[in-house]
Measured scan of single mutants.
Amino acid sequence: MGFKLLSKLLVYLTASIMAIASPLAFSVDSSGEYPTVSEIPVGEVRLYQIADGVWSHIATQSFDGAVYPSNGLIVRDGDELLLIDTAWGAKNTAALLAEIEKQIGLPVTRAVSTHFHDDRVGGVDVLRAAGVATYASPSTRRLAEVEGNEIPTHSLEGLSSSGDAVRFGPVELFYPGAAHSTDNLIVYVPSASVLYGGCAIYELSRTSAGNVADADLAEWPTSIERIQQHYPEAQFVIPGHGLPGGLDLLKHTTNVVKAHTNRSVVE
């Protein structure tokens, strides 16, 4: 069995187990497998329904001669939608809004960016022009300005110390501490036991640490421990890039980060 097929099978099995364990909360999309990078042309966006009122959005972007996937989250909030992270750029984010209108038909009224990198804030200006209120932590807003990236308009308070959590509509926002970046936030959907790890969490097929220019490698494993301790009931975990899975993604990420750190020390 090929690795790609095995990865998709694991996603399907995880979703099936969740649907059985929580039949009222989960209505997993039966329309197909989780979209992969090879299936999404740059400039297009796919939506994948995880649970009743919960979707991931998947886009792709060219970077350094390669094409990478990027995940975000959409959560229903009454007759409105909360968006977590842009679709990595203005063109993708405009396509995301169009796809949401086509498939869901509810307005996106608020959006949260989970850290300051372009795959999370690139497209904020498109959201703002569409009347979406954009939010991020003060740290993310400051770092985005320093980096020359787009800056969300509103500040999220109460997320300055490791372990801080605040309720934001249908989700809980959690600051686990520094990891992929010093400002990275985690998003949890309690009604569906869905954990969105953003770039602080890796997919299972990833074996290298990737972009760690703004990471705190020493603190990252401790931050992941905080996530595990705060959300032990999480059933569906979405990484910032690639295929979702279960809580095993947290341990896998820790292993990859520690291996990278150990290699760096040896070198």
Results as ranks from 00 to 15, higher is better:
residue 231 Y to K: 10
residue 53 G to L: 08
residue 56 S to V: 06
residue 99 E to F: 03
residue 6 L to K: 10
residue 111 A to E: 13
residue 133 A to L: 02
residue 195 L to P: 01
residue 75 V to L: 07
residue 16 S to K: 04
residue 16 S to E: 11
residue 4 K to A: 14
residue 48 Y to W: 03
residue 213 A to Y: 03
residue 113 S to Q: 12
residue 27 S to C: 11
residue 263 R to M: 04
residue 226 R to T: 00
residue 263 R to D: 02
residue 90 A to E: 11
residue 71 N to K: 02
residue 221 P to F: 14
residue 119 D to H: 00
residue 244 P to F: 12
residue 197 G to L: 07
residue 107 P to K: 06
residue 97 L to N: 01
residue 95 A to L: 12
residue 31 S to G: 06
residue 81 L to H: 00
residue 61 Q to K: 02
residue 163 G to H: 08
residue 63 F to G: 11
residue 171 V to K: 01
residue 48 Y to D: 07
residue 194 V to R: 01
residue 45 V to S: 04
residue 198 G to L: 03
residue 87 A to N: 00
residue 221 P to L: 12
residue 213 A to G: 11
residue 5 L to G: 06
residue 155 S to L: 00
residue 110 R to K: 05
residue 110 R to L: 14
residue 141 R to C: 10
residue 71 N to M: 02
residue 100 I to Y: 00
residue 197 G to D: 02
residue 211 N to E: 07
residue 168 F to L: 07
residue 217 L to Y: 01
residue 133 A to W: 03
residue 64 D to A: 06
residue 237 V to A: 07
residue 126 V to Q: 06
residue 31 S to I: 02
residue 260 H to S: 02
residue 168 F to Q: 12
residue 197 G to H: 01
residue 43 G to L: 10
residue 36 T to Y: 05
residue 252 H to E: 09
residue 101 E to T: 03
residue 68 Y to R: 05
residue 109 T to C: 09
residue 160 S to T: 08
residue 235 Q to A: 12
residue 39 E to H: 06
residue 51 A to Q: 14
residue 88 W to I: 00
residue 59 A to Y: 07
residue 216 D to V: 10
residue 39 E to V: 11
residue 47 L to Y: 10
residue 238 I to S: 11
residue 7 S to Q: 00
residue 202 Y to G: 11
residue 83 L to D: 14
residue 25 A to K: 13
residue 11 V to T: 11
residue 216 D to S: 08
residue 171 V to H: 01
residue 4 K to G: 03
residue 207 T to Q: 14
residue 164 D to C: 09
residue 78 G to Q: 13
residue 216 D to N: 13
residue 250 L to G: 10
residue 187 V to M: 01
residue 157 E to T: 14
residue 241 H to K: 03
residue 29 D to P: 09
residue 184 N to T: 13
residue 43 G to Q: 03
residue 102 K to E: 05
residue 104 I to H: 00
residue 53 G to N: 08
residue 71 N to Q: 06
residue 67 V to A: 04
residue 96 L to M: 07
residue 155 S to D: 15
residue 168 F to T: 06
residue 167 R to Y: 03
residue 87 A to I: 00
residue 188 Y to C: 04
residue 142 R to Q: 04
residue 100 I to C: 09
residue 186 I to L: 08
residue 9 L to V: 06
residue 46 R to E: 08
residue 30 S to L: 07
residue 131 G to M: 15
residue 66 A to E: 08
residue 22 S to R: 06
residue 14 T to G: 09
residue 161 S to P: 10
residue 254 T to E: 14
residue 189 V to H: 02
residue 214 D to V: 09
residue 146 V to G: 10
residue 154 H to D: 15
residue 27 S to Q: 05
residue 224 I to K: 01
residue 199 C to A: 02
residue 148 G to V: 06
residue 162 S to R: 07
residue 127 L to E: 14
residue 174 F to A: 11
residue 24 L to G: 05
residue 167 R to Q: 06
residue 12 Y to T: 13
residue 154 H to K: 03
residue 66 A to Q: 07
residue 97 L to G: 02
residue 20 I to G: 06
residue 125 D to P: 12
residue 1 M to H: 08
residue 97 L to S: 13
residue 34 Y to A: 11
residue 138 P to E: 15
residue 65 G to C: 03
residue 204 L to M: 10
residue 50 I to G: 10
residue 200 A to Y: 14
residue 72 G to R: 01
residue 144 A to W: 15
residue 84 I to C: 11
residue 37 V to D: 10
residue 124 V to Y: 11
residue 76 R to V: 07
residue 246 G to W: 08
residue 86 T to M: 09
residue 26 F to K: 08
residue 156 L to Y: 11
residue 148 G to Q: 12
residue 187 V to S: 13
residue 56 S to E: 08
residue 155 S to R: 02
residue 218 A to N: 02
residue 229 Q to I: 06
residue 136 A to I: 15
residue 134 T to C: 15
residue 32 G to K: 06
residue 216 D to Q: 13
residue 139 S to T: 01
residue 14 T to F: 14
residue 44 E to I: 01
residue 139 S to R: 08
residue 175 Y to E: 12
residue 237 V to Q: 03
residue 214 D to Q: 09
residue 193 S to F: 05
